[in-house]
Design a binder for these strands. Sequence first.
RNA 1: CGGGAUGUAGCGUAGCCCGGUUAUCGCGCCUGGUUUGGGACCAGGAGGUCGCAAGUUCGAAUCUUGCCAUCCCGACCA
Length: 491
Amino acid sequence: MSKELTSRAEDYSQWYNDLVIKGGLADYSAVRGCMVIKPYGFALWENMRDQLDKRFKETGHVNAYFPLFIPKSFLSKEAAHVEGFAKECAVVTHYRLMNDPNGKGIVVDPDAKLEEELIVRPTSETIIWNTYKDWIQSYRDLPLLINQWANVVRWEMRTRLFLRTAEFLWQEGHTAHATKEEAIVEAEKMLDVYAEFVEEFMAVPVIKGLKTASERFAGAVDTYCIEALMQDGKALQAGTSHFLGQNFAKAFDVQFLTKENKQEYVWATSWGVSTRLIGALIMAHSDDQGLILPPKIAPFQVVIVPIYKGEESKAVIDTKVDEIIKSLKALGIRVKYDNNDNSRPGWKFAQYELQGVPVRLAMGLRDMENNVVEIARRDTKEKNSVSMDGIADTVAKLLEEIQQNMYNKALAFRNENITTVDNWDDFVKTLDEKGGFISAHWDGTAETEEKIKDQTKATIRCIPMNNKQEAGKCVLSGNASVQRVLFARAY
RNA sequence: CGGGAUGUAGCGUAGCCCGGUUAUCGCGCCUGGUUUGGGACCAGGAGGUCGCAAGUUCGAAUCUUGCCAUCCCGACCA
């Protein structure tokens, strides 16, 4: 991505929107703040979803589905929870429409007012814990390890495609455990699952850590997170996992009998990632030519473009390409052959670059005669002629190399943009001139955290896991500190 | 909810200040042809409540008032 784009937030927004729209992932919809995910974008999401789902199942979880609507009274049972979500809820108040008595179309029937309003779920803790109450009686019912793939609605003031939309797709895991220790292990385990997925499949390096009290999920005892760095120097929370303690168990009265025949409240976790991950993917890798998708989750890993003159040569190339496609598919490679006659090769090249397809093969008569094919990689934009012999292996190897290269590049960028800072002037200067993560001492108080946020817009992204303990002085207050934490401006 | 801006064909736009034939141009779309190794060319064609409403006027895309919507910057954002 060009320097000019990163230097101005407004241009960066434009760059990002163009990528999403022209890259064919999504578009604005008729409903304010909601987006239409287009087939190409949805295919990407499906690939991500399938990988995550596989890992959830490997770690013992099962999928279920809970209602979209939550009775208003449920939401208010956990005090911190309602406090956190009340400001952004869509509310259903009526269940029927009628013809306008004045003849002006259709109006809400005032007689069809619901006795209790329904909230369109902003997250499902309350409806799920209300259900778990009926499912859990004994320690034999535990642990309960359930995940749900669903949509949620949060009526945000300001939205951005994928990063913050009024409605978004996500998964939310909700687990119940007999002991505190087991619940904490679960929350940390799922954070690891997220981190591994994001790094290995999305090629985006993340920092695992713990949120401070003020950044915590509404209703959680501890919130774990993975934080990624975008190319404009801002941080993005890519996923969270919460240790909920007994807060929801107490709010919904979920108790179980232990082996010792004692009534105890269960311990809970919840964890989620959303279509926001796609936003992270775009901002971490793309350039001025368009998207760059990592091979492991790209809807198409390879696109083949024929170059021909007239129907006859097209038929010859089609036959040859069929062989290539077969050999690629035999290795499980997702390939698209675009022999559409309506657009020319140059247009296709540009189009697939915009869409971030990792590898492009171009095949013409000239290549066929020489038993070669042109191979181009999206990440570095290198182009080469390679032998047709063993082409599938060549492509497979290149896909792996691209995946690795994308991760290495993002990792190098991330590491270059973690700055260790020991005084306030440097803190402000680094934030304004360089961006990225700042590793600095913090006195551990919410007051200092708040002051830093007010003065610089930087927040504590996380206290890294297994953080090194070292004595120091808080970068703002000068008070004693026991460790450095990571600050950044964030999405 | 505050500040700024914008609404003209599917998309991007000119025209508006200073009212006056049939609303401009590009992309895209349709038809026919020539093309095809980095976003093709020629010819013909279709497509418009000028955001909505009211007002001023012989006459409104253009002026006035009100409303609506969207975008950007803030505030807000497990």
